[in-house]
Measured scan of single mutants.
Amino acid sequence: ILEEAISVVMSGKMSVSKAQSIYGIPHSTLEYKVKERLGTLK
């Protein structure tokens, strides 16, 4: 489920907030994982 949510957000089909409510994943977790994948994590 997490992988799917990350893919959807990264493809631009859904915002982090929308994915959070649909997949039930905490906003901070989703945002962290997306940034980690994009290489923008500081």
Rank of each mutant, 00 (worst) to 15 (best):
E36S: 06
G12A: 03
I1G: 12
E31F: 02
G39L: 11
M10L: 13
G12R: 04
K18A: 12
V9G: 02
S7W: 07
P26F: 01
E3Q: 03
K35I: 04
S7C: 08
T40K: 12
T29R: 08
K18F: 01
H27M: 14
T40I: 08
K33C: 13
Y23Q: 03
L30R: 01
K42D: 15
S11H: 10
S15K: 03
M14F: 05
Y32L: 14
L38D: 13
E36C: 04
S15I: 00
V8Q: 14
V9H: 01
A19H: 03
K42W: 08
L2P: 07
K33S: 11
T40F: 04
M10S: 04
I6A: 05
K42N: 15
H27P: 12
S21L: 10
V16Q: 06
K33F: 13
K35F: 10
E31M: 07
S15M: 01
L41T: 14
I1M: 13
E31A: 11
G12P: 00
K33D: 05
K35G: 11
L30K: 03
K13N: 11
S11N: 09
Y32C: 14
S28C: 09
P26H: 09
S17V: 10
G12W: 00
V16L: 13
S11K: 09
T29K: 10
Y23G: 05
L2S: 06
V34G: 05
M10N: 01
E31S: 09
I25A: 03
I25E: 04
L2I: 12
S17C: 08
H27Y: 09
M14P: 02
K42R: 14
L41M: 13
R37D: 03
M14W: 02
T29E: 14
I6R: 03
L2H: 01
A5Y: 15
Q20C: 10
E36M: 04
V34C: 10
A19T: 04
S28P: 10
K18V: 08
T40W: 08
I6M: 04
A19Q: 01
E4F: 02
S28N: 04
K33I: 07
Y32W: 11
E4T: 08
K18M: 09
K33V: 09
S17Q: 13
L41V: 14
I6V: 12
K35Y: 03
K35W: 05
Y23M: 04
V8K: 15
I6P: 00
R37T: 08
S7D: 10
I1Y: 11
S11G: 07
E3M: 02
R37H: 08
V34K: 04
G39Q: 13
M14C: 08
K35M: 08
G24L: 02
L38W: 07
I6Y: 09
S17M: 12
V9S: 01
A5Q: 00
L30P: 03
Y23S: 06
T40S: 13
S15A: 05
K42E: 15
G39S: 12
R37A: 09
